[in-house]
Simulated assay, not measured.
Amino acid sequence: MKLIGATASPYVRKVRIVMAEKKLDYQFVQENVWADDTHISASNPLGKVPCLVMEGGEAVFDSRVIVEYLDTLSPVGKLIPTQGRERAEVKTWEALADGVMDAGILARLEATWVHRKDSERSQAWIDRQLLKVNDSLKSMSQGLGDKPYCSGIHLSLSDIAVGCALGWLEFRFPEIAWRSEYPNLGKLLDKLMLRPSFADTKPS
């Protein structure tokens, strides 16, 4: 398998962590989708990463689809429950974490996209997205409480998704002081960073 992505992307990082935890072999191909010479549309018509290209050449895209597929490839370290309320809980955590990243990226693009003039940028839009980030962090902290992991007592996709969101916020929004406001989230991220899958994929 070939994974097309960028080391700074939190969605790509989520897939890379799942592959590491599942002990799956793959080739990592870095791609800057914002570059004029990007070829990502040849594999993903949406022009996004991550994109997983199979041995036969067919592509799977969107991180949620990819990680669900990967979890079926090996019985090692099952990350997503197969059915019922437990499955819905893990997928809801993933949706919440992805939503943090979605909102954060929209805010960052509004503030930094080079093809937009300063006069065209909307602070109200940025504030709206960052409010979603702050509300979601509060919800994450409340949902985690004093539990060792987001969904029960073992690592699951919930923790991987949340860890990727928190790590990306530290990377791109260091001014957001979420660690002081939600110390249980900081404790979770610190614990996750002890795992090689997280340490080896720290965004850069």
Rank of each mutant, 00 (worst) to 15 (best):
P10A: 08
Y11S: 10
K14V: 01
I17D: 07
V18Q: 14
V18T: 13
E21G: 08
K22A: 07
F28V: 07
Q30D: 10
Q30T: 15
A35G: 03
A42S: 11
A42M: 11
V49S: 07
V49C: 07
V53W: 11
E58L: 13
F61V: 04
D62H: 06
D62A: 02
Y69A: 01
D71C: 10
L73H: 02
I80G: 04
P81Q: 07
Q83C: 12
G84Q: 03
G84I: 06
R85F: 14
R87A: 10
R87F: 08
W93N: 08
G99C: 04
V100Q: 10
V100D: 06
M101Y: 02
D102R: 01
A107Y: 05
W113V: 14
V114M: 12
R116M: 14
K117T: 11
E120Y: 11
S122C: 14
W125G: 03
D127T: 03
Q129K: 09
L131T: 14
D135C: 08
G143T: 06
P148G: 01
Y149H: 03
S151E: 04
S151Q: 09
I153Q: 12
L155H: 02
S156A: 11
W168L: 07
W168K: 00
L194Y: 04
R195Q: 02
S197H: 10
A199N: 09
T201H: 12
T201N: 15
S204F: 15
